[in-house]
Amino acid sequence: MVRRSPYPQWFYLPAGVVYGVLFVVPTFASFYFSLTRWTIFESHFIGLDNFVAFFREPALVRGFTNTLIYGVVTSGAKVVLGLALAVLLTSRIVARGWLRSVVFFPVLVSTIGVGLTFTVLLNPERGLVNQVLGAAGVDGPGWLTNPSYALLSVAMVDVWKGVGLATLIYIAGIVSIPQEYLEAARVDGASAWSVFRSVILPLARPATVTVIILSLIGGLRSFDLIWAMTRGGPGFTSDVVASVIYKQYQAGFAGLSTAGNVVLFAVVTAIVLPLSRFLNRKEVEL
């Protein structure tokens, strides 16, 4: 007699149906529809035309390069600032718990709300940021209206909102470093800097890997903050692939929009997968 397992595989079924129908099927369908001229109702196979358009039209190419810039800038800034804040917030300072809460809270706030608030704060003439800069004698630029600053201004706000999560991950990593290592280093007369450089930094490596991967995935896919602050403007200078996808969808070019999705898929996997493999391998060697 075969005893039936207490762990039946049909437990996978409900989740599998929802996930399969609404995530797996659309993902595979996107590969086909990206090769078509498509109105959601009708599709004509046109080969690689959508992708050619994607890499010929200046507006779309700009979205592609902006996505890379945005992902790298936000991810890099979150690593540096998150680590610095985590070191600060695990040191002997007053009001540590309160400071951790303050740094973390923006993570939980509505992205649209944050975007609209900073749009006002960054207003070129009357915004708080430029008023303060003006009082200090600096002529602040049009953060969101100047094509050369718009994307980076949004990236700055993204870092403001997201650095709390990076900090938390680093705090968890630093707290788990055995105290003996830090004491041994101090007994050996290591300076604060060399403790950081040779003990904390290498031992917090798993946290670094997590922060880089997570913020890259988030940054490359980012849409709502950019949409709330600039809508990809001025012109298309702060467009990213995710906002191009939305714009093309609204304009009725479902095939081109889906090609954008496939490009985004390719970018994210082509960057994140090798990077996580590389970072995790070095961790083992340590």
Binding site: V25, T27, I40, I245, S257, T258, N261, V262, F265, V272
Partner: peptide, 8 residues
């Protein structure tokens, strides 16, 4: 990791 394919 995979960004959802919205229009499909």
């Amino acid at each position: 990791i995979v960004p959802p394919a919205v229009v499909p």
